Deep mutational scan, measured.
Amino acid sequence: TYYTVKSGDTLNKIAAQYGVSVANLRSWSGISGDLIFVGQKLIVKKG
């Protein structure tokens, strides 16, 4: 599943919304830090 980052989103908010960890969200999407951008597509795998 892809999630497109919206204004005001954080990795914590997105992870909580999908019931996954921030570490997994980073790993799946190839992100090393906490910086995400509006319009960026993140990969989300539901448990």
Rank of each mutant, 00 (worst) to 15 (best):
L42S: 00
S7Q: 14
I36K: 01
L11Y: 04
I36C: 05
Q17G: 07
S7R: 11
D9K: 00
V22R: 04
G39F: 05
Y3D: 02
A15M: 02
Y3N: 00
L25G: 00
N12V: 15
S32Q: 13
T4N: 06
K41M: 12
A15G: 06
S27D: 14
V44T: 07
V44A: 03
G39Y: 04
K46Y: 14
G8H: 06
V20R: 01
Q40K: 03
K6I: 09
K6F: 04
R26F: 05
T1N: 12
V20N: 02
D34S: 09
Y3F: 03
L11Q: 01
S27F: 12
S27L: 15
D9V: 01
Y2V: 13
N24M: 13
Y2R: 07
Y18Q: 07
W28L: 07
V38D: 06
V44E: 01
D34V: 07
T1Y: 14
G30W: 06
K46S: 13
T10K: 04
V38H: 06
S27W: 10
T1L: 14
K6W: 03
D34P: 07
T1M: 14
G8A: 04
Y2Q: 09
S21V: 04
N12R: 13
K13P: 00
K6Y: 04
A23C: 12
L42G: 00
S32D: 13
V38N: 06
S32H: 12
A15Q: 00
L11E: 01
L11K: 00
Y2H: 09
V20D: 02
S21N: 07
K13Y: 09
F37G: 06
T10E: 05
V20P: 00
V5Y: 03
V38K: 07
G19W: 05
Q40P: 02
Y18E: 06
L35C: 12
G8E: 06
K41A: 08
V22D: 04
S27H: 14
G47H: 13
K45R: 14
I31G: 02
I31Q: 03
R26P: 01
G19L: 07
L35P: 08
F37R: 09
F37C: 14
K13V: 09
L11T: 02
S27I: 14
S27G: 09
V22W: 03
S32I: 14
K13N: 11
R26N: 04
A16W: 10
A23D: 15
L11C: 04
Q17T: 11
S7G: 09
L42F: 03
Q40A: 05
F37W: 11
V5W: 05
N12M: 15
L25N: 01
D34I: 07
V38R: 06
I36P: 03
A16S: 11
I43T: 10
Y18A: 06
V44W: 04
I14V: 08
K6V: 11
G8C: 05
G33L: 08
D9N: 02
